[in-house]
């Protein structure tokens, strides 16, 4: 049997709106994934440390305060610094299309915007894991 996908979910920055991330947590769990939700006001450092310690496949973050152009790149930087860029970073929030495109260019694997059904996040993670595994097999 396939190993369960492990996902760390967190709210970076100061924003406390956690409806979305809790819905995602429940949906990923119902889809058979292991979900670790580390809660509010996590710094990029805290998020990456927890991700490494928990040995997760992916990190999902939710930002509704408009600070996404600072926080996503900061998490990517810490991942790189800790030699952990193999951990998939995805997220969602109030994020305009232009910013979404720029973030995805910078290395955020996927940015979901309001109205995206949870099944999209589930499928995205399943697909991304398949790709990751085939990469590992090649290496």
């Amino acid at each position: 049997m396939d190993k369960k996908i492990r996902v760390l979910l967190a709210k970076p920055g100061l924003d406390g709106h956690d409806r979305g991330i809790k819905v995602i947590a429940a949906a990923l769990r119902d889809a058979g994934m292991e979900v670790i939700y580390t809660g509010l006001r996590q710094t990029p450092q805290m998020i990456v440390d927890a991700a490494i310690q928990e040995d997760v496949d992916a990190i999902g973050v939710s930002i509704l305060s408009g600070a996404h152009m600072t926080l996503f790149p900061a998490i990517l930087d810490v991942l790189k610094e800790k030699d952990s860029s193999d951990i998939i970073l995805f997220g969602g929030g109030i994020i305009p299309d232009d910013d979404k495109a720029e973030l995805e260019k910078l290395g955020v694997a996927k940015v979901f915007t309001p109205g995206a059904p949870t099944i999209e996040a589930i499928k995205f993670l399943q697909e991304a894991m398949k790709l990751k595994k085939s990469d590992e097999n090649i290496m």
Binding site: G13, L14, D15, T43, L64, S65, G66, A67, M69, T70, L71, A74
Partner: peptide, 18 residues
Amino acid sequence: LMGYDSDHERSLGEVGKC
């Protein structure tokens, strides 16, 4: 809203945003 001044390190990227 969280009681940090604009020059606080935790305010980075959030000043004047929402």
